[in-house]
Design a protein around this nucleic acid. Structure first.
Length: 294
DNA sequence: CAGTCGCCCTGCTGGC
DNA sequence: TGCCAGCAGGGCGACT
């Protein structure tokens, strides 16, 4: 369930606790999360061992750790992935998939556990995964097609508006298209559409420019609120995002609220099936398009 | 090329 | 009580 704000919390945690350390060992406990590393788990482990982590970066929902070899560890949390920094002595998590031994670090010799820390990739459902991106320190070629996110200073608003207005797909589908804008998932898409008072089935090429601008503002509002809350949920050694940021439940206007009153007009929130998932919206504030594009 | 659909995974929940 | 269908869903391969 992690969307951009949750992934950003993980990135910040990695920056604080992993950057500057050297990987002394790597152990892959389940092959599935390494499926994108075609050379296999053993090659992955051998390639990262002995390398130092230079930084922690993110594009959309992808994370990568540039290494001093010029390569990078590329990761995606999928639905249920977590990155944990734990003492090596901590008992293995139930869904522990990959563990990295760490040494050194920003604390130098002062960190009490700096020689006994591990970075752990834990993922119950294994939609996520890790891979070594060859030469991918600056931007892994595997994710070159992923757009910037709307909180990125270099995100191009005008280009986004133009591209959306050239597409005939429903605007919710476009919001979830990571090549147009990254970091938006099913939950925040519904929330942003509610804020902009747009139905997700409205074709992009039938929207006014002002509609798309309002939608982009809605995305930023939702993400900023989630970032503000998620940013407080980690501080110590423990980097953990489990789909819970504190933002969930408390602040969602429509997602997961079928039958509850819309806070703006009082109409009951409606749930419909969408791409084998769910969409939630207010039928009065977000009226369906009059004619479906066909 | 744009658009759409189905699959990958595990665990929890609800209905019978 | 036990079993199974349904649901959660990001991203990508395959198809039209």
């Amino acid at each position: 369930m992690p969307e951009l704000p949750e992934v950003e919390v993980v990135r910040a945690g990695l920056e604080a606790h992993v950057v500057g350390r050297t990987i002394t060992s790597a152990e892959v406990l389940h092959p599935r999360p390494l499926r994108r590393h075609l050379a296999g788990p053993d090659d992955f482990a051998a390639s990262v061992t002995g390398r130092t982590v230079l930084s922690a970066r993110r594009r959309g929902k992808y994370l990568w750790l540039p290494l001093d070899s010029g390569d990078a560890i590329l990761g995606h949390l999928g639905m249920s992935g977590q990155m944990l920094v734990q003492p090596a002595s901590a008992p293995p998590e139930r869904h522990l998939r990959v563990r990295f031994g760490l040494s050194g670090g920003p604390d130098g010799a002062h960190g009490p556990d700096s020689a006994g820390l591990e970075l752990r990739f834990v993922d119950q459902r294994m939609f996520g995964g890790l891979a070594l991106s060859s030469g991918g320190a600056e931007l892994p070629p595997e994710i070159a097609h992923i757009a910037r996110d709307p909180m990125d200073a270099e995100f191009d608003d005008d280009e986004f508006v133009m591209r959306v207005r050239r597409r005939s797909s429903g605007v919710k589908r476009l919001l979830l298209d990571q090549t147009l804008v990254s970091g938006v998932g099913n939950i925040y898409a519904d929330e942003a559409l509610w804020l902009a008072q747009l139905h997700g089935d409205r074709p992009g090429n039938k929207l006014r420019r002002a509609d798309v601008v309002a939608l982009l503002a809605g995305v930023r509002t939702v993400m900023a609120a989630a970032l503000a809350q998620g940013g407080t949920s980690f501080d110590a050694l423990y980097v953990n995002v489990n789909g819970q940021s504190g933002y969930f439940d408390r602040s969602l206007e429509v997602y997961g609220r079928e039958g509850e009153a819309c806070s703006r007009c009082g109409s009951p929130v409606v749930r419909v099936s969408f791409m084998n998932r769910s969409s939630y919206f207010c039928p009065r504030c977000q009226p369906r398009p009059r004619r479906r594009s066909s």
